Computed example of a mutant assay.
Amino acid sequence: MNLFSRTWAALRAAVASLPDTDFEKPSGCRGWLVRDVVCHLVIDAQDVLITLATPASSALTHNAITYWAVSSEPPTGDDPLSALIVRLAAAYEDPALLKFHLDDVGSAAGRAADLVDPGERVSTQEMVLTAGDYLSAYVLEWTLHHLDLVAHVPSVAGPPADGLARTRSMLEQIAGAEFPSSMPDEDVLRVATGRRAPTEAETASLGDLAGRLPLVLG
């Protein structure tokens, strides 16, 4: 729960510190500009609010790891939802409006997360899981998108180290294998999720695991 709050606060602070011109730069998410990532975060924050306000009484079906559906095909940015995000982000025109909207709904999502009972069952996308597991899953979401945000904006601070470490651990559980200790967390996260191709040295150190990458999470 605390890690959710720290990673979310760090990501929102990174967005708040972005100069307006950086919103037009490419992000680490294929097909999206920085402004598109920020717009996606607004949708994410809305999802957090909706889910935490959707209690469930049925049996648990998922946890923080099984929450994620995994495929091997990187997104192209052409699917309807991605296309909608791009159009919506462009409609803001003034980056200050997008910053304001994220701060507004994002702060509310953060407060809701601080107040919820981690053992409470919630429902989302036909899944039932504890609020604690749901918010733990979002540590991965925040951390990956924080990396996307700063991929071509080195002047902005990256995600917290404990968020990187936790996301790496979650990806290892999803993959059912450990990544090489020689690879820093940021490199593991980018390579494992297809945000960049591995170098020859990384491919060699990954061994058989290289053939199972990327892990495209949805």
Rank of each mutant, 00 (worst) to 15 (best):
Met1Leu: 14
Met1Thr: 09
Asn2His: 11
Ser5Glu: 11
Thr7Glu: 07
Trp8Ala: 12
Trp8Tyr: 02
Ala9Phe: 00
Leu11Lys: 13
Pro19Trp: 12
Gly28Trp: 06
Gly31Asp: 05
Leu33Ser: 14
Val34His: 05
Val38Met: 03
Cys39Gly: 05
Val48Phe: 08
Leu49Trp: 01
Thr51Ala: 15
Thr54Tyr: 01
Thr61Tyr: 14
His62Asn: 14
Asn63Gln: 09
Ser71Gly: 15
Arg87Ile: 06
Leu88Tyr: 02
Ala91Asn: 09
Pro95Arg: 05
Asp103Gln: 15
Gly106Asn: 03
Gly110Ile: 01
Ala113Tyr: 01
Ala113Asn: 02
Val116Pro: 09
Gly119His: 14
Thr124Lys: 12
Thr124Phe: 10
Glu126Val: 00
Ala131Ser: 12
Gly132Cys: 09
Tyr134Pro: 01
Leu135Glu: 04
Ser136Cys: 09
Ala137Thr: 11
Tyr138Gly: 08
Leu140Lys: 01
Asp148Phe: 08
Val153Ser: 11
Pro154His: 02
Val156Ile: 15
Val156Met: 07
Val156Gly: 08
Thr167Gly: 06
Leu171Val: 10
Gln173Val: 01
Pro180Leu: 12
Asp187Leu: 12
Val188Pro: 02
Ala192Tyr: 04
Ala197Glu: 05
Glu200Trp: 15
Thr203Gly: 13
Ser205Cys: 15
Leu206Ile: 10
Leu213His: 03
Pro214Thr: 06
Pro214Glu: 12
